[in-house]
Amino acid sequence: MHPDHRSGELPDPFIERLAAQLREPVSLSPEVERVVLDRLRTRPARRRWPGVAGALAAGIAAAFGAGLLVGRWTAAPSAGVPSVRPVEFALRMPADSAVVLVGDFNDWNPAATPLHRATDGVWSVTVPLRPGRYRYTFIVDGTRWHRDPAAPRALEDDFGAPTSVITIAQR
């Protein structure tokens, strides 16, 4: 017998037989979907997702796929430092907005990194980043702080404004 490759446990024929029976299809009412859709139509309580579209986030991740390592965080580059990688930040906002990106990678400078609006209503900018962990956020129209809905929220909120975190992998 070969151990279960996931847990290292030896398979047990009796238990395997039970499990096989339990894996047989169980047919619940096909009305489940209809009941749920009726419920949702009556009380939709959803709004359009204002941030980065899921596909865009997945596309970004797929385009810049890598492993994960928090690399050295230094103020100045030095020999042997991990290479810089382009990372795209994006946010869906109305056309007449002005959106900028601020974070640990640009000294939180609102003038440093404006986003540019694409035709599909998504504002974006690509920033070269070394491996590391960075806090950041978007500023919309100079006054509204908007965290990235596609990114982990930064836990610490020292200044009362929403902030996100990005971790850049090192290959």
Partner: peptide
Amino acid sequence: LPTEPLVQKALEGASKGAPGPR
């Protein structure tokens, strides 16, 4: 100890208009 995290925290506060003591 690393200093850059402290610098960035100060700049974050400045960017967010936080008062000095904060």
